[in-house]
Amino acid sequence: MTSAPVPMEVETLRSAPSLPTVFARAAATARGRSGDSLPHRLLELPGVTVERGRLVDYQRLCGFAVGDVLPHTYPHVLGFPLQAALMAKGDFPLPLVGLVHLENAITVQRQLTADDTLDISVSATRLRPHPKGRLVDLVTEADVAGERVWEGRSTYLHRGRGDASAEPGIPAPPMPQGQASAVWRLPEGLGRSYGSVSGDVNPIHLHALTARTMGFRRAIAHGMWTYARTLAALGGQGSGPSASHVWFRKPVFLPGSVELLVDRSQPRVVAGLRAHRKAEIEHLVLTLEAR
């Protein structure tokens, strides 16, 4: 983890911020954001408990086994309101609405269950140039009784004036090739379904009409859904101590069909999603390994 040059200001919340409110505030204050520095602020929400009904909805929608074990990606859902709240604040240099989720990495230190009470914190780090604009990392950390059990790093791109000489990040492995191991037909309402279980009601995911206002011809699937669905297809390994890294490529338009490709030849499993019958359109590549 990169440490901030000056001590973090810690802001402790008593309840999870309401995402529709946060999104509305972020949209209203999108214009005029600028600057080269990130707020030195850690947003924390202690004592987060898992609502079983929401967990079942999430597990069902993403294809995980319905039960007590938290999926690899679930703490991200619990921490996402903090991410959004941090980015909606006035001192955050980039506008939340319009950021492109480019990469995500997750480390699960131990298997988590619905009985665990999580202390979640979020901070922003590494504002840096990219050939197509600027990148920022939002780091989410979850502790149980003072022990770090889960961490996630979400990398977002703000499109703008790029820097062709920008230092590249960790390169993605090549997309697995060959025959699809599964074909998934994603319904038109998938974005609304995932929005209701995750709280992520970003308009680009909800409906073709709201997506059009953001410059997309149709609604696009949440990256965190395609990521979770792919991990679920890889089996239970990700719920134990494990690490994953996903690189998002082209958006998945809804409704649509995607193909899953898996390469298990190495201990680090590589999986990819591409458009059904259009192999050249790649949606994501991810890696998963046990720790």
């Binding site: 009904g53 079942v56 086994a65 319905v66 039960g67 007590d68």
Partner: peptide, 10 residues
């Protein structure tokens, strides 16, 4: 809200 498959898997 658990299905037969969910319970048998657990």
């Amino acid at each position: 809200r658990a299905s037969d498959q969910d319970m048998l898997t657990a």
